[in-house]
């Protein structure tokens, strides 16, 4: 195990952590009724890997992300980050949500600084905030307030706010879902570039099959609620990928079939 993870670390020259999801089931109590959302999900993600979770709407993908983030505890099963059990939120696993959820009372700079401030290390490491704002290309907006930003810019700030913590696992909950299609394509390339540069492990939830195929090393297809793993598909294609690549088109057809949508092909 140790040997293989070391081998992986060489494959991805990375700071990423290994993520182990083992026999995880989860359910919600809604008005006295138990609503199962995850059914015995097991998944191992290698350090530095980019994994996309695809599944029908409401199948429990986002719940799985909340468990990975440590915002909730699973009813059964365990989640581990680098062999250490996940018991609560930690800045090594940062989530970027579908809504940027920037704090409207903080400027761009202060929003990005949030993590370092919460951990009490901002004073010594202010340059990290500047660097990451530079990285997402928003240096001239560092003093702007969230209401002055466009949707794409706000989501970039949210990304910077996550990245400033140098996360080992970046958890993305449909982060591009609400952007217009052009901004979305541009942000997909930026995301791949950031991931390749930083080497964090990435877990992405998306509705968009094409997005999953353009971004991820591996695509996990989930079933209807309660979610089970239906397929685990490797996307063995170098970056940058092309949307018209026949190999990806083939995979897309196969995945749409798994999701019960082959008629749309």
């Amino acid at each position: 195990m140790v040997v293989s993870s070391a081998a992986e670390a060489i494959t991805y020259p990375a700071v990423g952590a290994e993520l182990d999801i083992e026999g995880v089931s989860h359910a919600f109590d809604i008005d006295g009724a138990v609503l199962p959302v995850l059914d015995n999900v097991s998944l191992t993600i290698a350090p530095g890997e980019f994994v996309a979770l695809l599944g029908p709407s409401g199948c429990g993908k986002s719940t799985l992300l909340r468990l990975v983030a440590g915002l909730e505890k699973p009813r059964t099963g365990t989640l581990r980050e680098d062999e250490v059990r996940i018991a609560g939120p930690h800045p090594s696993r940062v989530v970027v949500f579908q809504d940027p959820t920037l704090f409207p009372w903080r400027s761009v700079w202060d929003n990005v600084a949030l993590g370092l401030e919460a951990q009490g290390i901002l004073k010594a490491q202010r340059h990290r905030v500047d660097d990451v704002i530079e990285l997402v290309g928003l240096s001239s907006f560092r003093n702007a307030y969230p209401h002055q930003l466009s949707g794409g810019m706000a989501q970039r700030v949210a990304l910077a706010r996550a990245l400033v913590n140098d996360p080992k696992i970046l958890v993305l909950d449909e982060p591009l879902g609400k952007l217009d299609s052009l901004t979305r394509i541009a942000m997909q390339s930026e995301l791949v570039a950031l991931w390749q540069r930083k080497g964090f492990t990435t877990l992405l939830v998306t509705h968009d099959v094409e997005e999953a195929l353009v971004l991820a090393n591996r695509v996990i297809v989930l079933s209807d609620r309660p979610a089970r793993i239906k397929a685990d598909i490797a996307v063995a294609r170098p970056y940058p990928r092309h949307r018209g690549d026949p190999y990806l088109a083939d995979l897309r057809k196969q995945i749409l079939g798994l999701l019960g949508l082959e008629a749309t092909w």
């Binding site: 800045p91 949500f97 913590n165």
Partner: peptide, 10 residues
Amino acid sequence: AYYDVARTLG
């Protein structure tokens, strides 16, 4: 959502 964001950031 604000609390979730802040909690994941430590």
